[in-house]
Design a protein around this nucleic acid. Structure first.
Lengths: 219, 219
DNA sequence: ACCTGAACACCGTTCAAGT
DNA sequence: ACCTGAACACCGTTCAAGT
């Protein structure tokens, strides 16, 4: 009676309701009205369940319109990946596993293809293009994961109290710049600077790959 | 009889032996020869224990020699952070919490100070310098976390079998670049490109901050 | 103060037994 | 085939009771 699509749909429902940390095999079974052990006839284990969930989600990521410039195509594809992860940030935690990405479906791989193709069109060798993609991927995944953990802290009561200064009480003689920033740090660290950072990174990577072919051509 | 330093030392021992995933309150108590509940008289909870551990570790990170150029000082400090995290990668998972960094001790904050000061010396405004640090931090933390998860997979038997092609069986008409790369992807994705990526990113960030002051000055 | 065992409220997963 | 309850081997944490 219980089917894999049913299980996946129920899992999505539960995750959207109360976050992926709360998704448990037992809770999922209860949502479906079956015993916990029933699920193991349709899914290998919890890891497999998460993989199937991400696979499914990845296939429905919208394809962005691609600009003409290779550099801008890279940015558009990276932004699409980032946007998708923003909505399902827990997926980043699973996707951080290397090789995991490569097992996604065509629709998700198309975004990677776009970045790699953009780098090559800009003048990179294929190995350099892989390096460009990986670097962007690290930056993207890092930004998302810090974002996820922010949400964690918000749930806790541990976040700094209203008047608490971040760098207010620092030794200004040893750490002058941080002390001068004081609690402005908190405000600045809150801003979404992913798009600007991405542009800076892509420009830096493309300049590096094409300006010094001798140094990086063999990687 | 049980003291906090004893607990921390035992915890480090266990982590170095069998990884931080294996560190459990019960196991730590057993290592110390006391009941599990005893620890709660010396440490608030497990999260507090991890914080104390990282705080302690962060204080002993060696300070790198600083080059003259601001740009090179940023790279030296970021590399020191990266190297420290490489040896204790699980710390990255905890440090990914925003605001967590700011609660570290002076010795660890000095590395952040160095990056922020380097950016300012290069011509950034203080807010831009914070943005530069954060961007580098995302990249660094992302690289480390992917590294951590690699180790996870190695433990599992799920890593691709010997002859398994990464992108070998892809639809070459829809994903030509990836299909052309084939299993070379695996080899390329394995390489340590953090240093090159860092240089590209720093150069991109510094160029952006100083060339278009009007666009980013108010952030 | 410092430590304890027992207990609470959970996990993922296995396995022999049912229909 | 499909599903089940009971059980296994764990977690972090609380709390009343001991010395």
């Amino acid at each position: 009676m219980t089917s894999r699509p049913q299980i996946l749909a129920a899992a999505r429902r539960l995750i959207d309701q109360s976050g992926w940390e709360k998704l448990t095999v037992r809770g999922l079974a209860a949502e479906l009205g079956v015993g916990p052990t029933t699920l193991y006839h349709h899914v290998r284990d919890k890891g497999d369940l998460l993989f199937l969930l991400i696979h499914e989600y990845a296939e429905q990521i919208p394809h962005p319109d691609l600009p003409g410039e290779p550099r801008d195509r890279i940015i558009a594809a990276a932004t699409a990946i980032h946007d998708a992860l923003c909505e399902w940030p827990w997926a980043a935690e699973v996707l951080a596993t290397p090789g995991f990405i490569t097992r996604l479906g065509d629709s998700a791989l198309w975004l990677i293809e776009t970045i790699v193709a953009g780098a090559i069109d800009h003048g990179c060798t294929p190995p350099q293009a892989v390096y460009v993609f990986r670097s962007i991927w690290y930056y993207t995944v890092g930004e998302i994961l810090v974002r996820v953990h922010t949400a964690d802290r918000w749930a806790d009561a541990e976040r700094p109290a209203d008047g608490e200064t971040f760098f207010g009480g620092l030794d200004a003689s040893r750490l002058p710049r941080l002390a001068a920033l004081g609690d402005r740090w908190a405000t600045l660290a809150w801003q979404d600077t992913y798009p600007e950072g991405l542009r800076a990174f892509v420009d830096g990577l493309l300049a590096q790959s094409t300006s010094a072919p001798g140094r990086t051509a063999d990687r």
